[in-house]
Design a protein around this nucleic acid. Structure first.
Lengths: 104, 104
DNA sequence: TTTAAATATAACCTTTTGGTTATATGAATA
DNA sequence: TATTCATATAACCAAAAGGTTATATTTAAA
């Protein structure tokens, strides 16, 4: 649950996230944006729901989707921390160097 | 090439990126950190190399790996723009609202 | 010059991903 | 009420992901 890395791995899913961040979209609206089949879209929607990033609302024969903003905000923040740490390893090295220096 | 989303999809690969950002690591060093087999690690390394994020250097019987900092910096920056846009859709909506207002 | 260690590769396996077509179900409208 | 539109599901497929074991190959050290 909430493996944002899994959710964002596919460009179609990233676009769905973007669309549903703007406004609630029906499934058929989403389907019409892409060239792949409706069942293929359902599978992408299912993965996004599994990871908690999409909320589903049923109204009559329509199925509305929208981004769960708070879940996205949270897991994206975690992602940034994790990947930011990779960028900042040089700083970690400096820190380690300074700490080692303290010991002497 | 340089599909960072593919590269970071697996936690083992993210940890390899972190390790090799700190310092150049030999393959056996990397293997020893994890519980999976050496051929499994090679496959992860191959994916990271395919995406241009890892640089390989051969010295005798050792194979050294280190993060390609500039490629990582760049593709991470692209990722941030793409995912940042999802977060900031509310602002886009405001912009659209204001532009629509101009037309009237 | 054996031997041992580091790396590479082959062959295989299972699960997941990403897609398809065909068809069923359910709700709204003509 | 018959039809049409939106969604769901089943069955299938190919490729990618993520792993294994067994076995080369290459290089350094005993």
């Amino acid at each position: 649950m909430t493996d944002i890395y899994r959710a964002i791995a596919d460009p179609i899913r990233r676009q769905i996230l973007l669309m549903t961040a703007q406004k609630e979209c029906t499934q058929s609206e989403i389907v019409s944006v892409f060239t792949i089949s409706q069942p293929a879209i359902i599978k992408h929607l299912t993965i996004l729901k599994e990871e908690g990033l999409l909320e589903e609302r049923r109204s009559g024969r329509y199925c509305f989707y929208r981004l769960n903003q708070s879940v996205f905000r949270n897991s994206y923040s975690n992602l940034q921390q994790e990947l930011g740490a990779i960028l900042e390893q040089k700083l970690v090295n400096l820190k380690l160097f300074l700490e080692k220096d303290d010991d002497q």
